[in-house]
Design a protein around this nucleic acid. Structure first.
Length: 626
RNA sequence: GCGCCCGUAGCUCAGUGGAUAGAGCGUCAGGUUGCGGACCUGAAGGUCGUGGGUUCGAGUCCCGCCGGGCGCGCCA
């Protein structure tokens, strides 16, 4: 991508992306100028990786490209690195942020960012405000790692091996070819999560899935994707009938039947059941349980929606399993599988040939009694979702559902969709412990801690952080007493404190006449970029803070690519720490030196924007005082 | 038995095949007559469960073993 492809209002690419593009250009030019041999035609060129080295002596960015090229090019890594470094130093692109290049044994390229580029980027962050950190959609598929792009610098480096007429011979052909780095429209992703059946209130076991799903959505949105948040629920069948039977029994003063639901909420429902509904239910005779069940489950569903709203989780679409049948999706899906020859009958049941796609066994779609299985619903739902135009489906499931992953993805393939477009995120279990004893979360037995109760004990912000800071694959032991005790020392408050502290500084600055009063907070203090440079450009401490806040777009890219948010919480902590250190070492509000003060206020304002945007990515509040 | 996930500092957890394995909490020792002390500086603390293998390089990839969780229905 070159400068002219970018528009001022597009999400800005990360510094790392600009650096990678510069290294790719340098590699291409090194091949074109015969400083480096081209890739052997039978080998795929390696991805250009740009990393942030741990050791600051290694610069702001580093690349192992020369190490990876050593074998295929049959040259020493140091020689390759030297050739790329030479071209990098000659790069004429105006948006090249690389200020200096070093080659370090065994062959690393260590890159330093030009301070002027840092200040330009901070200025852009100030201008972007709440949009800072948003990045363009990734040029590689979100699923599947690193497919080889059909064109671009790497292809050019390969094409140079077979110099056909008018391809690589043309100077800069690779770097300046009109490569569509972003698809014509952003990918539209459906994320289905929570999806607990409305037979009882959400308990704290559901909280992890709710947070993980919502966090993923926020991250994908920041990475330029369109996201639909979807909740799938069952509004018919035996569970709902059992709920109705339980409510009815209580209302009529009978014993709750075997296998019924017993929580306090069931008694509440019985008390709230309107006379009119009760009367109509009894008129239906044998269907009374189901009738009451439908009423009760809708009532419960509304309660779930309210609980989720307290978590800051809102769904765009609620889909009932029943609608997949009444709208004909299951029938159409079955027909399509029939046509493809993926179904067969045996023992009176209808089976899907999942083994044809590597599954352990074939799976029943319709039972011999004529009823469809849950899997049957899944198949109809797949067709419905793809028909709605989604490019990618994500299912956030409990880890106990891992056995059903293969069959659903296989069914997608059999229906003619790309299996890679169907992805399951398996959320590991949360074990709830109180006084060393595991607390069971059984709705039927009525012993569980509800989500609403949990939030009274520890706030939403602390709970969100707790989940976001952990990988979704690792099991968590959640000790309720410990969590209450630790909520007051949750790192989330450390980050929020930094934000509140900056807000306070900006208020002070406004009082001192150094910043526009109301702006102090919302809009930015923006001295001209050269003003920033003269006041901050030679200050390593200020520059260090600036470079750190400019990492947010990279954090967003990584989180979206990996579907993980631990990097976001770690980054938030790191940025807060860096700010506290800056605050210790540099006086921000200083009427004796207004020029420096204004430049530092701009930097601190940019830090505040970055902290706020990072917290927003996590769905956590950014208070101005606390 | 077969399959999937997990095992990293006292605790809770990070760590896209790269350079000296990190953070928070806890512990210990320090720090403020200036913009918020819910802060800052430093220290101690690790055979990355274990044994092999792959390679220039392995906490990371492959195989075996040990320990923990989950799954293996014409249940949902």
């Amino acid at each position: 991508m070159t400068d002219r492809d970018r528009h001022p209002h597009d999400p800005a690419p990360s510094l790392r992306t600009l650096v990678r593009e510069a290294v790719e250009r340098a590699w291409v030019r090194a091949v074109e100028s015969d400083a480096l041999p081209a890739m052997p035609a039978d080998q795929a060129p390696p991805e250009v990786e740009i990393t942030r080295p741990d050791n600051p002596e290694h610069g702001d960015f580093a690349s192992n490209l020369a190490l990876k090229l050593a074998r295929p090019l049959r040259r020493s890594p140091l020689a390759i690195a030297g050739a790329i470094a030479d071209e990098l130093r000659r790069d004429p692109a105006p948006d090249n942020p690389v200020g200096s290049v070093e080659v370090a044994p065994p062959g690393f390229l260590n890159l330093r960012v030009d301070p002027a580029a840092v200040l330009r980027a901070v200025d852009a962050a100030l201008a972007a405000g709440p949009a800072f950190g948003r990045v363009p959609p990734m040029r590689v598929a979100a699923s599947g790692p690193l497919h080889v792009p059909a064109s671009g610098p790497r292809a050019a480096a390969m094409a140079a091996t077979v110099p056909g007429p008018g391809t690589a011979a043309e100077p800069g052909a690779g770097a300046h070819a009109p490569v569509p780095a972003t698809p014509p429209r952003p990918p539209h992703v459906n994320v289905e999560f929570v999806s607990a059946n409305p037979t009882g209130p959400l308990h704290i076991g559901n909280a992890r899935g709710a947070f993980v799903g919502d966090l993923l959505c926020r991250v994908l949105e920041a990475a330029g994707q369109r996201v639909t948040r979807e909740y799938y629920f069952n509004d018919f069948g035996s569970q709902v009938r059992q709920l109705g039977a339980s409510v009815l029994a209580i209302r009529e003063g009978r014993e709750i039947p075997e296998g019924g639901y017993r929580g306090a909420y069931v008694h509440d429902l019985a008390a709230e059941l309107p006379e009119e509904i009760l009367a109509r239910a009894l008129e239906t005779g044998a269907e009374a349980d189901a009738f009451v069940g439908r009423w009760a489950s809708e009532r419960v569903r509304q309660g779930i929606e309210a609980s989720l709203a307290h978590l800051g989780v809102h769904f765009d679409v609620w889909t009932s399993e029943g609608s997949l049948y009444s709208d004909g999706w299951v029938d159409r899906a079955v027909e399509r599988l029939q046509d493809g020859g993926w179904l067969y009958e045996q023992d009176g049941a209808l089976w899907f040939r999942s083994t044809a796609f590597g599954d352990d066994k074939d799976r029943v779609v319709r039972r011999s009694n004529g009823e469809f299985t849950y899997f049957g619903s899944d198949i109809g739902y797949l067709l419905q979702k793809f028909d709605r135009g989604f490019d990618h489906l994500v299912y956030v499931w409990g880890a106990d559902h891992h056995g059903t992953v293969a069959r659903v993805r296989n069914a997608a393939q059999a229906l003619g969709f790309d299996k890679a477009a169907v992805e399951m995120l398996l959320i590991a279990w949360v074990r709830f412990v109180r006084d060393g004893q595991e607390v069971s979360m059984s709705k039927r037995a009525g012993e569980f801690i509800t989500l609403d109760e949990l939030l009274e004990e520890i706030g939403v912000d602390a709970a969100r952080w707790f989940i976001a800071a952990r990988g979704h694959t690792s099991g968590i032991d959640f000790d309720i007493e410990l969590a209450k005790k630790q909520s007051s020392e949750n790192p989330v408050y450390y980050v929020q404190y930094a934000h509140a502290r900056i807000s306070s500084i900006l208020r002070k600055a406004a009082e001192a006449g150094l910043a526009p009063a109301e702006a102090g907070l919302a809009s930015a203090v923006r001295p001209a970029a050269d003003g920033l440079a003269s006041a901050l450009g030679d200050d390593e401490i200020a520059l260090g803070l600036a470079k750190l806040l400019l990492r947010l777009p990279e954090v967003v890219e990584d989180a979206a690519a990996q579907h993980e948010t631990q990097g976001v919480t770690a980054y938030a902590t790191e940025l807060a720490t860096a700010f506290h250190a800056f605050y210790r070492d540099r006086r921000v509000v200083d009427t004796a030196d207004p020029a420096t003060s204004r430049a530092r206020l701009a930097l601190v304002t940019a830090t505040r924007i970055t902290l706020a945007n990072t917290l927003a990515l996590l769905g956590i509040s950014a208070p101005d005082s606390m």
